[in-house]
Design a protein around this nucleic acid. Structure first.
Lengths: 336, 336
DNA sequence: ATTATTTTTGCACACGTTTGTATTTTGGAA
DNA sequence: TTCCAAAATACAAACGTGTGCAAAAATAAT
């Protein structure tokens, strides 16, 4: 391994000043076409690569953006991560993906790292754990623009891309009611988070509108796993407090419920109606096919990226408090 | 937004030299405990954050590592990405995740980016497209250590973490044979890639050992999607060249096959035996439950990270040509 | 009190790049 | 040839940090 070649090296070899080399490499019109070609040729031959640390230190040109998600390996987020990564690539940005593991503390440290590395901007969906938003204030203070998607800090003035959780959950609940279900339960996450709170409210609103007696919001702050789904449903059965329909905020939990219903011989949709949030690769295979609320990952990714890009290129280019709401879709299948 | 505070700012305010501040912040024993405390207090109060660009430019201390995967949103890779991200976090590294989209060209550009940003090391699983390995030679040239996992460049001398693809596919095939299946097909990816080639060979070896007549390796270079799975199976049926068992390299393809068998009333395992690579969240739900070859993502992630870490801290600490082979597991369920 | 020793701080430069300004070179017009 | 404007290049400083070395201050030894 030989030491990496720098602009100064090129300058020395070519007996010109390194500032000229710098300009030549960036196609500055101030440099003679002839020398530009010589420099470019030399750079190419010797595999010159810009040192972005130096560029960023200088303060000019920063194409690094950071993405923070609670979990990389949950389908909703991994889809968005994948899409955003591609968008970033196309637009010439470098994207770093960070995972908070649903922990406020980790999220906070990630923010510190982002500041230290001078990222140009951040796209973030907050952890379930995050109730305090000081770290985003810090980000503001350092002048790093950021955009929230899905899970947001509502007390922070920054653009947000949201899903119509209230409306869609309202619709889903109403759909179940119209189908004749009377004891509808709603399983969701910590209602401190906008996403779960809005779904919760949408559910309640529909129940109340139709004056049903049975209201059963089941809020869990644990990690959404299939096992947790099994447990929640088992507890429901044991408690004799059995609903005749469920709206579930997590595909993982839904899998657990499905497992238990099979084990117990509970028929879907006859004995139990079911609507879940989120898609699953195998949705076409699983029987009965589960009705689901599908979120527009592509649209969310694109909107978030656009907003951030605008913010990076000009901090005043848009209303800092811009909120976009994208529509998710209720896909009725065989489970209700 | 106010300008960010630097070491020099602290020095000026405290009327000491910035070198002293630098040392104080890093707990250098050469600085007086008293002044250290003053500096630390001031830094904390004014929310000082190290500028890592400067640090990295200086050449001392680089904690950024890069991870390149073909797809972030395929379960095998997303699991590994997630695990590696956590490992990196625990060990104080910052990890950036890049996605090659199975394209050599993108992989190459990613490598350039990595060089330009002076990453301390790289963990990579190559694209299906990648037959040329010049870009890894470039990485070598720039002295950036890297570790391959799963899909590797065999002509590059760098540590590798592999899965026992030959053996496990051999076993799987033999298992099907022992169960009485006679016409076993194998669906896999481009055999230029070590992973698919080894599986291919393992399959062939088992077939030949048992002197079966029917050998049908189906190699596809297209993206592994459920739709492709449907198409491949439909073509098989149409061609009258119907196997009585299939080993499939991709869970997505397997889903497509499953879909088609249902549609056509083909019974698994009676009419068709099935073994797939990869896990799926819903595996407990899908009926019949599919026998699968499960890869030890955690072990792969840990081994890869350990190797890279050693390489970063001391380039000569291990045999550069180190190859670790981890064992995947054949889990027999109801599909064969 | 003087010197020797250790502890602590200051100084200056380097990392690689960019950019405003000054200087030189070039080419053309007088 | 001489001079002028334009084009091309060189110079120097800056971004924020870390480190070897020199200088100074504090402490210990004589």
């Amino acid at each position: 391994m030989k030491k990496r070649i720098t602009i100064k090296d090129i300058a020395r070899e070519l007996s010109i000043h390194h500032s000229t080399v710098s300009r030549a490499l960036r196609n500055d019109p101030r440099v003679n076409g002839k020398t530009r070609d010589i420099v470019l040729a030399y750079a190419q031959e010797h595999e010159y690569q810009t040192n972005m640390n130096a560029v960023q230190l200088r303060g000019t040109g920063n194409n690094a953006i950071a993405l923070i998600v609670p979990n990389i390996n949950h389908s909703f987020f991994s889809d968005i991560v994948s899409k955003l990564t591609n968008l970033a690539y196309e637009k010439g940005y470098v994207i770093s993906v960070f995972q908070s593991n649903e922990k406020y503390l980790q999220e906070k440290e990630i923010i510190n790292t982002i500041i230290q590395h001078n990222f140009a901007g951040v796209i973030v969906s907050i952890a379930k754990d995050t109730v305090n938003s000081d770290h985003f204030r810090l980000l503001e203070k350092f002048g790093i623009p950021f955009v929230f998607f899905d899970r947001v800090c509502e007390d922070i003035n920054s653009p947000k891309v949201l899903v119509n959780n209230f409306d869609i959950t309202f619709s889903a609940t109403e759909h179940l009611i119209n189908k004749g279900y009377k004891r509808i339960a709603h399983i969701t996450g910590a209602t401190e988070i906008n996403v779960f709170r809005d779904r919760h409210r949408g559910y309640i609103a529909a129940i109340q509108k139709h004056e049903l007696e049975y209201i059963n919001p089941i809020v869990t702050t644990d990690e959404f796993t299939m096992d947790l789904g099994k447990k929640i449903f088992s507890d429901l059965v044991d408690s004799q407090n059995i609903p005749d329909a469920i709206i579930c905020s997590s595909i993982n939990l839904t899998m657990g419920i499905l497992f238990e219903t099979r084990k117990r011989g509970i028929n879907i949709p006859a004995d139990l109606g079911l609507i879940t949030f989120g898609n699953i690769l195998a949705s076409e295979i699983i029987q009965p096919q589960i009705s689901s609320i599908e979120q527009p990952e592509t649209e969310i990714a694109e909107l978030s990226f656009d907003l951030l890009e605008k913010l990076i290129s000009d901090k005043n280019s848009l209303n800092i408090n811009d909120i976009k709401v994208v529509k998710s879709q209720l896909v009725i299948r065989e489970s209700c």
